[in-house]
C-alpha cells in the first residue's frame, strides 16, 4: 500500500468517525430542542444530556484531526480548498462555535434555558448541511481556475440539485443516525418512554435518508459521469450497505435488539462512506487535485504516520476508559450516580 493510500485512509476513517459521532451529537441536540418545543422535555432531556455531557468535546477533536491531517498529508489542498471554501467553511465555523459554546452554556451554566437549547439544537442541525457543501464541491464542476487561482461559482453551486440533495441527505442522515443510537441508549438506560419516542423518530427519518442517498447517485450520472461510472464498480459495497439498512429498520420495526440495529446502522454507513470514498479515488477535487499530485514529501509522510501510530497508542486506551466509565457503565447510564463537578 502506498503512503498516499495510507494517508487518505486514515483521514477518511477519522472523517467517518466525526460524521458518526457528530451526527449522534447534533441530532441529540436537535431532538432535545424539539422536545422542549413540543412539551416532551420530561421524556427526552434526561437521557440526551446524560449521553452528551462527557463526550461533546471529543466529537470536535475528530473534525480538527481531519482538517489538520489533510493539510499535513496533502498540503496542496490548503491552496485549492482554502481559497474556494472561505464562505461555506466560515459559516460552518460559526455554526460550530455557536453549537459548542451554547451547549456548554446551557449544560453547565443554566440548565434548561430554552434560548440556549434552541440555539444549539438548530445550529447543530445546520452544521452538517453547511459542511456537506465541501463534498459537493469535491465532485467538481463548481470550481474554475482564473489566473491560476481557483474560484468558486456560487450561482452554479446553489442552483445545482446535487447540492441540495446532499444537504437534505446530511440532515436526514444526522437525525436518523442519532435517533437509532439514542433508541438503543435510552432502552439500555431503561427509559422506555424515551426509547419509544426515539424509535418513532428513527423510523420517520429512515426513508428520507435512503431516498436522498439513492437520488444522489442518480444525480451524479449527469453531474460527474466519471465518478458515476466508478461507483458502478463498487456496487457490492452499496448493496451490502442497503441490506444493512433494511436490517436496522426491520429490527426497529419489530422492537428487537436495538444494539444490533445500531451496529448494522454503523455498518451501513461504513460501507456507503468507504464505497463512495473508494469510487472518488484518486481525486480530492475533480478534476484538479488527486491524492498523488497533492501528496506531501516522504519524510513528512513517514513522520506523520509514526506520530499517528504513537498517538493511537495513547488514544485507544483513553477512549476505552471514557466509554467504560460512561457509555457502558450501568450506574452512570441509569442515572444513579451524580458526580459532576
Amino acid at each position: 500500500m502506498s503512503l498516499e493510500i495510507i494517508g487518505i485512509t486514515v483521514l477518511w476513517t477519522f472523517l467517518f468517525g466525526y460524521i458518526l459521532i457528530g451526527a449522534i451529537d447534533f441530532g441529540a441536540g436537535f431532538f432535545n430542542a424539539y422536545s422542549l418545543l413540543t412539551g416532551k422535555k420530561h421524556i427526552l432531556t434526561n437521557i440526551i444530556q446524560r449521553y452528551l455531557s462527557p463526550v461533546w468535546e471529543v466529537t470536535n477533536v475528530f473534525l480538527v484531526f481531519f482538517f489538520v491531517g489533510i493539510i499535513g498529508f496533502f498540503p496542496k489542498t490548503a491552496f485549492y480548498y482554502g481559497t474556494t471554501l472561505l464562505v461555506p467553511v466560515s459559516i460552518g465555523i460559526i455554526l460550530l462555535a455557536i453549537r459548542g459554546s451554547y451547549y456548554a452554556f446551557e449544560t453547565y451554566g443554566s440548565r434548561g434555558h430554552k434560548g440556549y437549547s434552541f440555539m444549539y439544537g438548530l445550529s447543530g442541525l445546520l452544521l452538517p448541511a453547511s459542511l456537506s457543501i465541501v463534498l459537493t464541491i469535491s465532485e467538481g464542476g463548481f470550481v474554475e481556475m482564473v489566473d491560476g487561482n481557483p474560484v468558486l461559482d456560487y450561482w452554479l453551486l446553489f442552483t445545482s440539485p446535487l447540492t441540495w440533495s446532499i444537504v437534505v441527505l446530511s440532515i436526514a442522515a444526522t437525525l436518523y443516525i442519532s435517533a437509532v443510537f439514542l433508541t438503543w441508549y435510552a432502552n439500555k438506560a431503561r427509559y422506555f418512554e424515551a426509547a419509544n419516542l426515539l424509535r418513532k423518530y428513527a423510523l420517520i427519518w429512515a426513508l428520507p435518508t435512503i431516498i436522498t442517498a439513492g437520488g444522489i447517485i442518480f444525480e451524479l450520472r449527469r453531474h460527474n459521469p466519471e465518478h458515476y461510472a466508478n461507483i458502478q464498480n463498487f456496487w457490492p459495497m452499496f448493496l451490502i450497505s442497503f441490506i444493512m439498512f433494511i436490517g436496522t429498520v426491520w429490527l426497529l420495526w419489530i422492537r428487537r435488539n436495538y444494539g444490533l440495529a445500531f451496529i448494522l446502522l454503523a455498518g451501513q454507513f461504513i460501507f456507503a462512506f468507504f464505497g463512495y470514498g473508494a469510487s472518488h479515488y484518486p481525486y480530492l477535487l475533480y478534476p484538479y487535485l488527486t491524492i498523488y499530485d497533492s501528496f506531501t514529501n516522504p519524510a513528512m509522510a513517514i513522520s506523520l504516520i509514526v506520530v499517528f501510530i504513537m498517538g493511537l497508542g495513547l488514544l485507544i486506551p483513553s477512549l476505552y476508559l471514557l466509554m467504560r466509565l460512561f457509555l457502558f457503565d450501568k450506574d452512570y447510564v441509569r442515572g444513579k450516580s451524580k458526580h459532576h463537578a
Partner: peptide, 8 residues
C-alpha cells in the same frame, strides 16, 4: 477525553 472523565 480526560477532562470529560475528570468532570464527571
Amino acid at each position: 477525553i480526560f477532562l470529560g472523565i475528570y468532570l464527571y
